[in-house]
Amino acid sequence: MPSAAQSSEVTVLLARVRAGDSTALGSAYAAVYDELKRAARAQLRRMRDAFQTTALVHEAYLKLAGGAQLAAVDRNHLLALSARAMRQVLVDDARARKADKRGGGQDAMTLTAALGSGDAAVVEVLALDELLASLHKLDERAAQIVELRYFGGYDEAEIGDMLGISERTVRRDWRKARAFLLMELAT
């Protein structure tokens, strides 16, 4: 867990980003970089994918920096947006790899270290992404919790802090979301 000073520093940097300071996003991201690498490493280990940790974190940054105006208000919000960006990067990569397997024509640009590895991870990421979209329509907070746990690698206490809810609520919503996902996978 970061100190209050570190969290405050990120909040100030994000305020500068919202005010138009283009260099502040890089500084804010650098302040949470080690935590993002830890989360990415845990996620990729679970997936048994050859996607490189550093590449995933950097691609997530590029997604955040290249998109619409960043609206993160504090450290926790930046981490949540980064988890969502990592999800998008992994889904985009999985779709490209799947299209390549179907003879998509040109070689797809991929960030994985070894092409052809992690085929099961491709299917898992795409299936989970579709299920999360369905869950988001039913229960937005439960979908956020799944995204933060699965794609962000955060534990219940960290998620509770990020979302401003108790660990008990995180556990309850996690059980509900997991039941929904398992039910949908079984059909």
Rank of each mutant, 00 (worst) to 15 (best):
A113T: 10
V170D: 02
Q106K: 12
R18H: 08
A68M: 03
L131Q: 15
Q88G: 15
T169S: 13
M47Q: 13
A120K: 12
P2N: 12
E59C: 07
R45F: 08
D93T: 02
Q52S: 04
T23D: 13
L36K: 09
D107N: 08
T54P: 01
L81F: 07
D74Y: 01
L148C: 11
E156A: 15
T187A: 03
V125K: 07
K98F: 03
A96R: 11
L182K: 10
A121P: 00
E184D: 02
H136I: 00
V125Q: 05
A30K: 12
E59G: 08
G67Y: 00
L128M: 02
T112A: 07
V73L: 02
A31H: 04
T187Y: 07
L62W: 01
T54W: 03
L163P: 05
E156N: 15
A96H: 04
D34N: 12
A121V: 01
T23M: 12
E59M: 12
A143Q: 09
D161L: 12
A114H: 06
G160K: 01
E184I: 02
A120F: 13
A68H: 07
Y61E: 12
N76K: 04
D107M: 06
L111D: 09
G160E: 00
Y29C: 04
V122A: 03
R38L: 12
R84E: 13
D129L: 03
A177M: 14
A99K: 11
F151D: 04
R45A: 15
A72H: 09
G26E: 10
R84Q: 14
V32R: 04
E9K: 14
S7G: 09
R168A: 14
D173W: 00
A186V: 11
M86I: 03
